[in-house]
Design a protein around this nucleic acid. Structure first.
Lengths: 167, 167, 167, 167
DNA sequence: TTTT
DNA sequence: TTTT
């Protein structure tokens, strides 16, 4: 039983196609990069300045399968999950931390694109969730150490999904 | 699968002891009256005016039992559920509507009184949430990464995912 | 100050065009009927049965104006507000209660239709939300850290906080 | 205006006393370390295994002051904010990222310790928690807005649980 | 009374 | 590093 609350609610757009892999047991795991667009008021100019926040989403179970099948780069989606920060060591042995939003059977996902194919919500509603054997993917989860992010300024608005995604 | 989102989050105090009854099938149903204290600014006086909002909560399943056992008049509690408006007829045959917050296996409840006995959260942990050897299950609590993750690169949740190492 | 939490989060579709009226002071008030689609598993047939829940939304302020202008019957929308139950008397003098979701400056609204014109979020960010030289203000959009944060240690939000560099 | 949703809701305990600093402009900024306790079911033993997740909270504005004054190591608190990941460079010039929960004027904070001194919610209502004036209809914080409100008074505050509970 |  |  949880003795606390740890909840994240996001609506945003995918920065790239989802990546789905399967565990040795055949359980699907899908990784998403999600952009939420916000803005803040510049105190000097009084103008609203756009800001894009990028989130790492990791999905498990049936919801992971549905996301892998129906979501695509640019898809708008509602996500409910929980925060989790993982500790790891980089090549130099230094402690590093990565924060992700975990979407599992306790989470929820809703496609918000009319074009989109389908939607899936969990939380008791996804019984059985039978899984087949599974393609064994390669790595793909490991975000390449993070140094690939050599942008020169603000991450681009989500409108342009051809740009690099920060971190 | 839901094609929408319907979520209510409340923190408040019970106005009376909970009332638990059982269905013909022996399933517990607990009713609560919950008060949330708020305030608004009076536009004439500029003063903050307190306001109490009362909510009807209906709980099902294990969460209903826990609430019936441990909550009491005055208990402070966190509740997550969904809105539901029921239609009924009064004595004169007129249509009437009552809006309740439903807390079932998809909801959550957290006791916030130190005095209080215990807390209960659902969503996977609740009885009935088949989880045994089933493939999907573990995903929910995916112990990927964690302090013990002493690898030299990014943690690979998928691998650890099938392991049994606590975190 | 609130001593409780009273939050509602909905994603659904309008059952009819919004209705906007104005108070004696000229403040806009918009009423919406919102449908959230859900489903539950019939315990006898094991089938998922669709269910539509209808919600009464009442919006105030700028958000009411935007909703009145851009939302239409069928529009998909994200709404964040609070529950409020109003007491009134019907013709026979009987007490009646109506539960609504209030969306004011503390709430939020997001249009989720690509067709739709615009989106509006409140919570201090709305235009007119006086923020000028006031000390507190900027905190709201605190551009602490970000790409330009080229320090050699952890980012120090407080320093950047007074800067004007976007992020 | 935000075109997305980025919301975090946490209930947990402080791992240490809050640290409050002030910007050059005199704006308070408070940092918290918050632990949320969860648990997952070990698939081999079937036992629930506890898990603690740690979160970095950064507060701005009045809420930062209140937190600095009243919260202490061990305090239980409800927090609503948004996710933000900051990029910075470590001593070796490597890109690093830190994810924080920002609690500003759009966020909320509620102390959940009875011992605790006070609570503070933002979102327009903030300053001057003075009480007194009489209820007045309409307006941004519209107490049961609408002409149909023919009640005989506001419902009683939750403090007195011996009073009748409305409807 | 909506939507996919 | 918290809490029950």
């Amino acid at each position: 039983m949880a003795r606390g609350v740890n909840k994240v609610i996001l609506i945003g757009n995918l920065g790239a196609d989802p990546e789905t892999r399967y565990t040795a047991n055949g359980n699907p795991v899908t990784n998403l990069r999600l952009a939420t667009d916000e803005s803040y008021k510049d105190r000097n100019t009084g103008q609203m300045v756009p800001r894009t926040e990028w989130h790492r989403i990791v999905m498990f179970g049936k919801i992971a399968e549905v996301a892998g099948q129906y979501l695509r780069k640019g898809s708008k989606v509602y996500i409910e999950g929980r925060l989790q920060t993982n500790k790891w060591q980089d090549q130099s042995g230094q402690d590093r931390y990565t924060t992700e939003i975990i979407v599992d059977i306790n989470g929820q996902m809703q496609m918000l694109d009319s074009r989109g194919g389908d939607s899936a919500g969990t939380g008791g509603g996804a019984p059985g969730a039978a899984q087949g054997g599974a393609p064994q993917g390669g790595g793909g989860y490991a975000p390449q150490g993070g140094d690939q992010n050599q942008g020169t300024g603000m991450p681009d608005p989500v409108d342009d999904f051809d740009d690099d995604i920060p971190f």
